[in-house]
Nucleic acid binder design. Sequence first.
DNA 1: AAAGCATTTTGCATTTTTGCAAAACTAGGG
DNA 2: CCCTAGTTTTGCAAAAATGCAAAATGCTTT
Lengths: 297, 297
Amino acid sequence: MKWDDLKVFLAVARGESLSSAGQVLKMDPATVGRRIARLEERMQARLFDKSPQGYGLTEAGRKVVAHADAAEQAVIGALEETRGASNTLSGSIRIGAPDGVANYLLPQICAAICDENPGLEVQIVALPRVFNLSKREADMAITVSPPQTGRLTVQKLTDYHLHLAATRQYLDQHPPIHGRNDLAQHRLIGYIPDMIFDKELDYIDEVGEAAHAGLMSNSFSVQLNWARQGAGICIAHDFALPTYPDLVQILPDQVALTRSFYLIRHADDRRVERLNRMAETLASALRHEIVRLEALA
Amino acid sequence: MKWDDLKVFLAVARGESLSSAGQVLKMDPATVGRRIARLEERMQARLFDKSPQGYGLTEAGRKVVAHADAAEQAVIGALEETRGASNTLSGSIRIGAPDGVANYLLPQICAAICDENPGLEVQIVALPRVFNLSKREADMAITVSPPQTGRLTVQKLTDYHLHLAATRQYLDQHPPIHGRNDLAQHRLIGYIPDMIFDKELDYIDEVGEAAHAGLMSNSFSVQLNWARQGAGICIAHDFALPTYPDLVQILPDQVALTRSFYLIRHADDRRVERLNRMAETLASALRHEIVRLEALA
DNA sequence: AAAGCATTTTGCATTTTTGCAAAACTAGGG
DNA sequence: CCCTAGTTTTGCAAAAATGCAAAATGCTTT
């Protein structure tokens, strides 16, 4: 038994003809007629009196209308349900991001997007680990390396740069730095080695063999605050520096790292238009903001 | 929006996997998956969390289940409705027939059929005119000529024969009949000319120019009863004669008519299996009964 | 740590369904 | 009495959906 046939049955019952039903359903009258024939066969009953003047309900057909009506109401209900649900999705979108992005990029960007789209509610989830999109921890997430596994769609956002940074005050009070080797005499701030959740964050080796971190946190934000208070030298995203004018780049020509951001989403959400628009807006805004902030650094 | 997709949605929600849903729906899991994908696209919402461990309902999906359930109930209701209706159809089948058939053939046949099919109720409608099957005056009808118009299926049943007949007593008391010409001296019983509803019933010309009816009725049964009471000579179906042993055929070799019966039905009922079986049973029984009765005549 | 297992997902040949155009049909009007 | 107007119905080609087999995926067990 095909539920769809009940839908065309309803249309024919209301239009009292195949042609009018076809117009409503945007189907050929021939198709409508064939579906009705199939339905009557499956139900083992004549539902319509057919004539070149149209389709008139038979006694049995009249009884079926009530049920078909109920079915239609249920279908509409289901549709409304998800329309509401997808509203709350577009009304409340959750974005996961590493804490650097979450703290120094997303706040401004999301605020701007919310201003342009009234009724949109954005949630930022800052977590120092990989996301599990499948469990709806977030609708989309920003990562520093494209995921290798899982049914996800990945989209490269933009490159970004990192440099050594410290406060002017710190640099004044400590031995001068003219080259990489001078770093050995300083206190470096970095990630806790066994809590690094993405190999792309393992900067310290690239800075130089001599370098090793004395202050460590799993949170970039904590690292940056350490540096801001003159505790040492950290490896900071350029886009984070303008937030704290105290901080200055160190050896920008000799020590420079380049990484990339990726936006990942459920593969199944590919066709959800609202999320597509949101993703595109977000990507575009992130690219511009990074360019703007890096120019200020 | 395809209502059918809601059905497969329900199956997947219950089976919590494409494969189990496929088993229930007797469809390939691949198809089930594609339908779910299409449904999610149309609804603009993710309904399931997909994994190689199965399909799990998402929050939005859970809300939809209730509506899908309601839809299912409505569809089942519609199905039950017509199942009941088609039961009463097979429980009460209405057969239209000219009154000769209605009186001298159908009673025995229908009684036998009812004996074999307990719970079957047969209604015989004897009407001296053409039927209007479209208005559900009858589910099927027996006629003496195939209809030329209307959406009907026609099926030839069998030939039958008519002869002149009167009571022995009448013949003894009136001039002897040795040939067609002798009929002019007798009182013939026939149809009322302007109430003949089918040209096949216009026997009188075929009997002979000399013949003309003095007693007329639109009902064959009335004509026969006239003859049975010795009122004259009628043109009787052979299968009706055994009912009244008083009646004997007259000039069986010189005056004999052959006609045919046809069973007509709604073209739309072609696929209703119960009616098909009923029609086949009826046709077969009629053929046998006519052969049996004509042998006795 | 690696292989097994039940599941979903993809590529392709087949079947089914659909749309279009033309024919058939019946009631109402000139 | 015929003819028109609006239907439904049929024949055929194109499009869509389906099933099957193979590949991929992620948990579980050895």
